[in-house]
Design a protein around this nucleic acid. Structure first.
Lengths: 98, 98
DNA sequence: CTAATAGTGAAGCGGCTACTTGACTTTCGC
DNA sequence: GCGAAAGTCAAGTAGCCGCTTCACTATTAG
């Protein structure tokens, strides 16, 4: 799971909006499209990117695809931030120790 | 400090590389440019975006601008991830309680 | 069966953005 | 002071990406 895909996914405001709405509850593609004022096709494309990044997963039942948040992407995000912060603090410690 | 700017900043692979290199130690603009195989001008543009996002800060001494990581952006990132995760777990709890 | 609903796939367009070039300013070394 | 080094600024280009349209499939409702 590539952290690059995660950041590229969340770099787009529409996808961030989708993620934040999915935080409330799982939703279908057209439910997501309605308040966003964009085509269902566009939403489907975003969902695909979000799935590739590991932030979202979806399953199709009948003709409805339901999308929900996934752990993978968020785990990767949290790890990346933690790593940077750790690196940062280690460097400050070394400087303090001089 | 807008979380949107943070994600847009980190959405670009070159800027992610800059951030990761700055994790090791503060560096000048041209030091950052060398291994990236891009112009000093391009790096300066990236630095500007990274500063706007709160991930990097820089100061110029003489003719050298030294860039280092900043806390603001990383704090914003961590908060955002924490909020999503919290929302996610709350929802799972509610489902479990049914 | 028919119509409507939910989504998929391919193809195209427009705007944004990452990067370059070239001219210029400021600073440092000799 | 002169030239090299470190950045900055403005302008231009090329490619990507978000979105649309249109045609199509699959599922559900009446």
């Amino acid at each position: 799971m590539d952290i690059g895909r995660v950041f590229e996914a969340l770099g787009d405001p529409t996808r961030r909006a989708i993620v934040e709405r999915l935080g409330a509850r799982p939703q279908s593609v057209s439910q997501l499209a309605t308040p966003l004022q964009i085509t269902v096709t566009a939403v489907a494309q975003h969902i695909h990117i979000l799935e590739d990044s590991g932030l979202v997963e979806s399953s199709k039942v009948g003709r409805v695809r339901t999308c929900r948040l996934a752990r993978h992407g968020f785990d990767a995000l949290e790890h990346w931030v933690r790593d940077r912060r750790q690196e940062w603090e280690q460097r400050l410690d070394r400087l303090g120790g001089l």
